[in-house]
Amino acid sequence: MYKGGKIIAALIIFVAFLTFPIFYNLGKANAGPDVPVVQQTATTQCVEPAEYMRANHMQLLNKWRDSFVQQGKTEYVNSQGKTFEISLQSCLQCHSTGTVPNAGGASIPASNTGGVSNPALNTSDQFCVSCHNYASVKPTCWSCHSGPEGATK
């Protein structure tokens, strides 16, 4: 080879970049996020079905914000005709506590890697945090609203 040293060094760097996730995850448990606890009683019911909420909660929150702030509506009628007060407190009644370490899920290694210590993310143990940290999605709710700890009063 001509200039073999440089070419092979560059290839090693390239392969190192490609295999970065393999080495980064090496020896860590693939536990998934901690499972948030829903403080649900027999009578309470979520605004929309859980499947829908999982996929579209952010859009529902945006819709709530717009209808409250721009149209002055204070109530939301869901797909089953049930009425809810448009307020974050409606959510936080049930979805306000912390998490328990993940014990189930698709892949079940023993231990849980826990939360992320990262300045960009919320490090509290509130409901939203574990999944949002896991997917690296930072909700903008708390840049205006006061934190969810007020909800438990």
Binding site: P21, Y24, N25, K28, V116, N118, P119, A120, N133, S136
Partner: peptide
């Protein structure tokens, strides 16, 4: 692909 997600990715 990685957990925890490094700061530069965020």
């Amino acid at each position: 692909f990685i957990e925890p997600v490094p700061f530069f990715v965020q």
